[in-house]
Write a protein that binds this DNA or RNA. Structure first.
Length: 302
DNA sequence: TTCTGCCCTTGGCA
DNA sequence: ATGCCAAGGGCAG
């Protein structure tokens, strides 16, 4: 068997690989003995972060993968996936004008948004409705094992995420068997819409935020929160601001404290739609990055 | 038009 | 044990 060579990628900006991969954005990463194993765009990847050899290159990413690809392909894939093309210091300057976010950025510096494949991202977040991270991970693993293709590296076997066409063959019953529950018909219908080209996810990358969000919300099972997740984590809409239970709590407690802190006597907390508009204005064009830090900080502190 | 309450699957936890 | 809750959304009223 031909040995798989380990490649290296130097990084000259804040990066916490482990935190970013396991922050709940992606559902395919597994930490084993210091390495992170996952599948991106049909590539089984083993990766870890190490110290670099100079102040200009503080970090090095070491990785290997299957199948064999052209030289440089994995480097660009990882660069894009980890959003190393973002000017993170500039983004930090913008969002840390808010003191709460500044605390979180100081505490979790290097936590990055990921740029996930839109198709996989859409299905993952449809599966996230009223669920929890371990269960979502299990659902995505089950979908991949059932409908994807196996890849093997150093004895580790993982499965690619299936294409829309392949998943469109699945019936609601097929998916319920995988314990998707009431989300099963939503996943099946999303797969059909994408497979039949009724929805062009990649085109939404170049569509304005509001219009792209409206297009996503035409899918059953996709409301404002899940649409914002897909836009933020896969379609480069950094102004998207998904409001989930954790972020809702953070917003209500930190930014709208009079609401629901007095036994219901005071003014009711603003509805999500109003808080979303407020957040996008307050945090600015990188509101989604602020949301990532608020979510992360809130989730870890409880 | 917008808001509210309830339901939907599953499973972990107290 | 029995209820609550978990990266929500659909639906009726």
């Amino acid at each position: 068997m031909r040995a798989i060579l380990t490649s290296h990628l130097t990084v000259s900006q804040p990066l916490d690989l482990a935190a970013s991969l396991h922050s709940g954005q992606a559902h395919r990463w597994e930490a084993v003995e210091g390495w992170h194993w996952g599948v991106i765009s049909g590539n089984l990847i083993k990766i870890r972060q190490a110290q670099g050899d100079s102040p200009d290159h503080p970090y090095v990413l070491a990785f290997s993968s299957v199948p064999k690809v052209e030289p440089g392909y994995l480097e660009s894939l990882l660069w894009s996936y980890l959003r190393l093309d973002d000017d993170i210091e500039s983004i930090y300057r913008e969002i840390t004008r808010d003191p709460r976010v500044a605390v979180m950025v100081e505490r979790y510096r290097g936590l990055r948004l990921l740029r996930i494949e839109p198709w996989e991202c859409l299905i993952s977040f449809i599966c996230s409705a009223n669920s929890n991270l371990p269960r979502i991970h299990a659902n995505i693993a089950a979908i991949s094992e059932k409908f994807g293709q196996p890849l093997a590296l150093e004895g580790h076997v993982r499965y690619t995420f299936p294409s829309p066409e392949r998943l469109a063959e699945a019936t609601e019953t097929d998916l319920r068997v995988l314990r998707l529950g009431f989300r099963a018909p939503y996943v099946a219908q999303a797969a059909q819409a994408v497979a039949e080209r009724k929805l062009d996810l990649e085109a939404l990358r170049h569509t304005p935020y509001q219009e792209a969000k409206a297009r996503l919300m035409e899918l059953p099972g996709v409301g404002p929160k899940i649409a914002d997740c897909v836009l933020l984590h896969s379609l480069d809409k950094l102004e998207a601001f998904p409001i989930d239970v954790w972020v809702r709590r953070a917003l209500r407690e930190w930014y709208f404290p009079s609401a629901d802190s007095d036994g219901g006597q005071g003014p009711k907390p603003p509805p999500d739609r109003a808080m979303l508009e407020w957040a996008q204005k307050h945090f600015g064009p990188y509101a989604g990055y602020a949301e990532l830090y608020l979510f992360h900080g809130r989730r870890l502190s409880r």
